[in-house]
Nucleic acid binder design. Structure first.
Lengths: 222, 222
DNA sequence: TCTGAAGAAAAAATCGATATTAATTGAAAT
DNA sequence: ATTTCAATTAATATCGATTTTTTCTTCAGA
């Protein structure tokens, strides 16, 4: 029942803008709308069952996430993808997450460790068939790893990069099932090293994990 | 005559949203509106001489730049500042710009070198009294340094961090004039090392430059 | 047949008005 | 005097309509 942050005030309402933003973002990440596809406000208004203003605001927000491109006065379109960008994202993630991870481990405490163990447990029990469901847990595990890092801005960058990357996973992985490699073992290795606070080991394992997945996906993309 | 990217199509028009965005962003960075200050749409509509929609879109865009915060259904306000955030930004800039700089130098060519020399020249000739004018040149020099880097996303992060940082400069530097340290010499050192493609030297000089300025500003902020 | 200009159609951007929601004030009750 | 609740006020969020811009189509002229 992850009803997002906007439930702070207690009431279960969520602004139309927020709803539109989340739904559209999900559609882009999971590939329900194609890279480069034109995003017409009139069409989205129908699809998202809302008015023009929320749609435009959602699109503005997605622009900053680099998931949508704004064209002059010619509307919006889904951001294009490329092999080059995929590799760029991979490299950046390795570098930035390593930074965040070092700091996270350094300032980690018991609650963090507990949260991480749980995140791993939930991920390992998640149904691999349900790609979207599994992704939620997978992201949660990786973000929890970094969560103790004291730089919110860096965490935001990592989060953004994660989403950009997941998009490529959906793009490539629609046919082939995800997880023929021993991803489970890699996650386990990361968890164990993290619990031991073995900084160098965790960083190495995490980067290896990303590069492995990356090499596999790059192959699919072509 | 830096009339932004939206002049692509040749006609000198600029959307209201873009105008509002740039003007408001500048007002926040230069401290014309205070951190934490409420941003009422009705008021901004007057100030920016435009309608509600462009104002709201501009605010959405600024939210992603981390210059504006969105409150539930209670509008927007200027992002708060803090000593902690100032230091966070400083550290991040050192790390990310070093990354970008290494790659930029590696893939640099003659045009890049020429552009850098010019950027430095223009900065050194700019009037120090005109803070805003000088800032334009200063930013241009630092961004040109990184410009050959092949990771657009990383460059975007650096750009964003630069702006977040400049805000603190304005906040601190309104009274005391900027440049009592020998900033000129530091820039010169960076330029020379860059032209020589001495990667380690440039990175060291750049980081020293940031840390010096940072220490000075931190003192002002308190 | 090709080129280019004019007009028509489509879409985006913007505006003003309405509906919702939160903040404030003041009165009543403890 | 203080707290609570209700009514008022203010501001946000949203919508439908209008204006502006771009794109598409058609038709005249070379």
């Amino acid at each position: 029942m992850d009803t997002t942050a906007s439930e702070k005030h207690g009431n279960g309402t969520q602004s139309s803008t927020q709803r539109a933003y989340l739904e559209l973002r999900s559609a882009i990440i999971t590939g329900k709308v194609q890279p480069g596809e034109r995003l017409k406000v009139e069409t989205l208004k129908e699809t998202l069952q809302t008015g023009i203003s929320p749609v435009r605001e959602a699109l503005s927000l997605l622009t900053s996430d680099q998931l949508v491109e704004r064209l002059d006065q010619r509307g919006f379109r889904v951001a294009k993808t490329s092999r080059a960008q995929f590799e760029e994202i991979l490299d950046l993630r390795c570098n930035l997450e390593a930074m965040a991870l070092r700091d996270s481990l350094e300032s980690s405490n018991r609650e963090w460790e507990d949260a991480l163990v749980l995140a791993h447990h939930h991920m390992s029990q998640a149904d691999r068939g349900d790609l979207e469901g599994f992704e939620t847990h997978h992201k949660h595990f990786h973000m929890t790893l970094l969560a103790a890092c004291r730089s919110p801005i860096l965490l935001r960058f990592c989060d953004q990069l994660y989403d950009l990357n997941v998009r490529y996973r959906y793009l490539a992985g629609k046919s082939k099932s995800y997880g023929r490699r021993n991803v489970q073992a890699e996650h386990r290795e990361i968890l164990d090293a993290a619990v031991k606070r073995d900084v160098e080991k965790v960083c190495a394992s995490l980067i290896a994990h990303y590069r492995n997945t990356g090499a596999f996906l790059a192959e699919q993309i072509g």
